[in-house]
Each structure stands twice: as structure tokens, then as C-alpha cells.
Design a protein around this nucleic acid. Structure first.
Lengths: 287, 287
DNA sequence: TAGTTTCTATTGGGAAAATCAATAATAGGA
DNA sequence: TCCTATTATTGATTTTCCCAATAGAAACTA
């Protein structure tokens, strides 16, 4: 009543908005004022205006209402069968800005649903999904189809070959495959040690890390060269902290396929359905 | 009731906490569940446990309660006569970490009171207070006492003389007053153009700025040397981006006096009283 | 195993609160 | 000056809220 009256500037109007009579609002606010010990409205004129205390309290009242509306919205979602939690297992490299944008929208739309991220390297992800430790997996394709899982091709994630500006390869105009051999290449490898076959080792001297973010840091510090997801290094390329390699054999962007994995034969709720739908478009948008 | 029952794990205990009977809680939660359309508690055992929907909604319910408690706290403050707003006019240089800490505590204690900062140069501040555009003024002493104002000495704010490491004065071992003359000194001056007499001009070549933060940037960039509040440059000194001058005549820190100004004969509320009390100690703490 | 305690659900009655309808007074607009 | 819209007040009514009491079930205790 307080908020409605403050916003409409009239007790009668507040009553109409709230579907109550005018006297209910008048009494309600009077009682509130008695409880508080001070007046919220200045009744000098016909349009009751807020006192300065009223103005200040209005912000708190509105904040409380917002929280209560959030509660209601979450309750409605849960009633509609929305999941209480969705766990996403994914390769760090796939968290691109267009996916983050979708996740923000998801959070607004499904406030009742918590999201949990499990960072993993692609080959581990099918097992994580199969064992029920996550609901949705986002990974680079490559490993054979696993039974019990439903795999869907999403799109291709563009990779670029990079090194730091100070690295010996930075200034070479046209690099052939054999010329790469002596230079240290940084490669992704799962903690269990299996290298990923969709990321080719082109150098003799290879170092490994279990996350593209680590590799990115190593490249920035001039440890070696690597293939990295373009979105992870686009800023660094623009600011000159990282340089693209001029590979002779690389005519277009190297873009390994990405797929989405879920459990076969599981009932999926509205939140997961929505998210899957959106996830399938993130790579189209990124192109 | 929902929150209390979830936290105590028992309807009876929740009733005791809330000062209500057990049946009230039982009924209340049943009604809420009917409204929501799903169960919040699993009554399989004797201790009712939250369902997964209940777990999720609990967070929203708690958030709503917090907002309502904030409302109540603010209302109580306003009832006790706390100001709805306090405006502080101060010289930027006085916003030292110990003052910020006090302001954070102030915000927690007086949530009903808004704080508004007016940045100004010291000589302008008495006029701002006198004209009623701010409630509390924090400034460097110096200008004569103005009638209608109450001025209280707070303490001294230590200043250090600094330049950038690349500046010619950086490497001089013992600088005499006459040696300073040819080097550009950066001085504070109010927008109206009056220089501040408590900041002595020691060089012939002087440039002016209206904020110590600007001067700090100019010093960092090697434009000249200046006296700056120690807390503004202590980090930069530690990291070597700024060097202290070795002045022969400077035996101790140069610490101009700071004072607090308020209007005489005004009723000051509890929030302002508290804040004034604390402000008087910030410089003792900084020493 | 039996007794005791501590739960929750349910019900009926009574108190409190909320709401409405009606009325009176007042201010602004035509 | 009339008309409309607004607020305050009051009495009646409805609704909500809560307690006390009861009963049944589960856990604890001896």
C-alpha cells in the first residue's frame, strides 16, 4: 500500500491498483505510520506527498517488494517444473562471450534454477555426463560416440596460432610445417595424460597444460607458441601483446567441431530445454 | 515461518523461536504450500527436511527477509531522528583510508541516512557550509574564521614532497631551498584562482591544478614536483613509481592542519553527531 | 519391551485484523 | 457555484490468524 500510494500519489488510486477500497489503503497507511512512529505522507494538500522520511523509506520498501517478487517468480518456476539446478561440464575454451550472454539471459529467465559449472578437458566430459555428475556437456568432438549419450554437433570454434611478439617465430613471414618443428608448442592435455587428437602436435618440442587459459598465459610470457581459441586471444592480438603466426599452410581459420552431450532417455525440464536450444546457436553467432 | 522452520529443522522449534504455537506454524506452512502448489518440506521423517524446491526457495525467502529487516532498521533510525541525508564537502586529499573505513561503518550503522559528497577546494568549503549546501566540511585550515561557522581542529595531514624517478631532482642527495627554484612545482589552486597559502610555492616555475589527484597524475608523468598527501602516494612510493625529494630543510613531515566546519546553532542529529565524533579521530589514527 | 518425550496434523473456538460500504469534509476544476 | 475526486472516519462483516486441546507417530530411555 505504501509503495502503491507513493507511486500513484493518491490513496484512492492505490486502492484501485491494489483492488481494494480506498478506506483500506487509508487505514492501512495510518496503521503503518502508527507502527513506525512517524508520518510517511504529508496530507497538507489533496495529493498526499511523501515526507522526507517517507522518501527515504520508500527505497527500502521497494527493495523488499522486489525480493518478494523474486520469491514469487522462483516459486512459479518451481511449480512449473523448472529444475532446481543445472550442471554444465565444459571445456574452458568454449565459454565464449556469446555463451556468457545466453547464460545471463538464462539467469534472468530461470531465477529458480542454479547453474553449476564443471571445468573439464574434452575427453573427460562424456564420462562426466554418463556418470550423472553433470547435465549438459560442451566439448570438442573427437572421441568416439559413447552409448547412453546423445551427442549433437553445435558448430566450429575458430582457433588461431599465436606466439608472443618477442618469440622468434613472430617476425617470420611465411612459416612452413618443417620450420615449426624446433619451436616449443604448447598443447592441451587432460589431467589423465591423454592428449587430444584434434589438436595436432606440429613441433618436436611440446609442453602440456590442462587448460587453455594456462596456455594463454604461457604464450603471453613467451614460453612457446600454440593454437588457441580466437576469442581468448582477440583482445591480446588487438593490443599487440600476442602475434598471430604466418603459417604457409593455414589458408583459413582452423576450427575444430564442438558438440553438446546429454544423457539419452532422460526427462529434461524447461530450463534445460531452453538452454540446449540456445547453446546450439552460440557458434553460429560467433562466426 | 518457512525460514524459521527450515533453520531449526522443526515446526515446534520454529514456533518457539517465533513466539507462536506449533499449530500456527504447521498451518502456516501448509497454507503456503497450497499457495505455491508444491511441498516445501518432506514429512517422511519426524524432522521435516526441505525438499529440493524448498531448498531453492529458502534462499529467496531469506533474501526477502533481509530486505524487510533493512526496512525495519531504517524505520527505527528515522524514528530516532536520524537524518535522511548528510552532505559532506571536503578537499579530495582528506579522503584517506581511515576516513573511508569510518564511512563504511557509518553506512552500516545508519542505513537510513544517505551520504552525499561534494568535492571542493579548501577555501571554498566555508562558503559551501555557510550557504547550507553541505552539513559537514573537511578542509585545510588557513582562511580566517568565518562568522556563523563552528570550526574544529582535527589534526594534521602529513604531506611529502615527491617527483617521478626520472625527474632531475630524484637523484639529488641534499636539496637546498635555492636549488628547488628552477624546477617546476605543481600547486593546488581553487577554480576561482586563489592559491592556498598553507601550501608554499618554493619554485619560480609553478603550475596549478584544482585537485591533488590531478597533481598526483602529473607528478607520475614527470611534469614536475609537488607536495602531496602522504596517503595518496604511499603506494606509488613503495612501488617506485614516485620518489621522495631529499630536502635539506625538511626535518620532519610537513603536516598542514585540517579542520572540520559545521554551521553554528544548528540542531545536529545522531548520525551527524556520530560522524563528527569519528572524523575527529581519523588523523590521530593516520599518524 | 514399555514408558516417556517430542514430534506433526487436525479441529474448534475466539481474538485480531482486514476490508467494505457509507458518510462527511475538503480541495480543485469547469 | 456546482461537480467531481480525494481523504478520514466509523460500524458491520468477513477473513485471517492463533491458541488450546487432541490424537497419532516416531525416537529416545530405562
Amino acid at each position: 500500500m505504501f509503495v502503491a500510494a507513493a507511486e500513484t500519489g493518491s490513496f484512492s488510486a492505490a486502492g484501485r491498483v491494489l483492488g481494494k477500497g480506498q478506506s483500506a489503503v487509508s487505514l492501512g497507511i495510518s496503521n503503518l505510520e502508527v507502527d513506525l512512529g512517524f508520518e510517511l505522507f504529508d496530507r497538507a494538500t489533496r495529493k498526499p506527498g511523501l515526507t522526507k522520511e517517507g522518501q527515504r523509506l520508500l527505497a527500502f520498501a521497494k527493495a523488499a517488494l522486489v525480493q518478494i517478487e523474486d520469491f514469487d517468480a522462483a516459486a512459479q518456476g518451481l511449480f512449473a517444473g523448472e529444475e532446481t539446478r543445472i550442471r554444465i561440464a565444459m571445456d574452458d575454451a568454449i565459454l565464449l562471450p556469446s555463451l556468457s550472454a545466453q547464460l545471463i539471459e538464462f539467469g534472468n529467465k530461470f531465477s529458480a534454477t542454479e547453474v553449476e559449472f564443471l571445468s573439464a578437458v574434452s575427453p573427460e566430459i562424456p564420462e562426466i555426463i554418463a556418470s550423472g555428475n553433470a547435465d549438459i556437456g560442451l566439448m570438442f568432438s573427437g572421441t568416439q560416440v559413447q552409448k547412453g549419450l546423445e551427442q549433437a554437433f553445435i558448430g566450429n570454434l575458430p582457433f588461431v596460432s599465436v606466439c608472443s611478439p618477442g618469440y622468434p617465430l613472430a617476425d617470420v613471414q611465411s612459416i612452413g610445417a618443417s620450420e615449426l618443428l624446433p619451436f616449443r608448442q604448447l598443447l592441451l592435455r587432460s589431467p589423465q595424460g591423454s592428449a587430444l587428437d584434434q589438436f595436432p602436435a606440429l613441433s618436436v618440442n611440446t609442453w602440456f597444460a590442462t587448460s587453455f587459459h594456462t596456455i594463454r598465459e604461457l604464450v603471453l610470457q613467451g614460453i612457446g607458441w600454440s593454437y588457441l581459441p580466437e576469442h581468448l586471444v582477440s583482445d591480446a592480438i588487438a593490443s599487440g601483446r600476442v602475434t598471430r603466426l604466418n603459417l604457409r599452410f593455414e589458408h583459413s581459420l582452423w576450427s575444430p567441431p564442438v558438440e553438446c552431450v546429454i544423457l539419452k532417455n532422460t526427462r529434461i525440464g524447461p530450463a534445460q530445454t531452453w538452454l540446449l536450444e540456445r547453446v546450439k546457436n552460440i557458434l553460429q553467432a560467433a562466426d
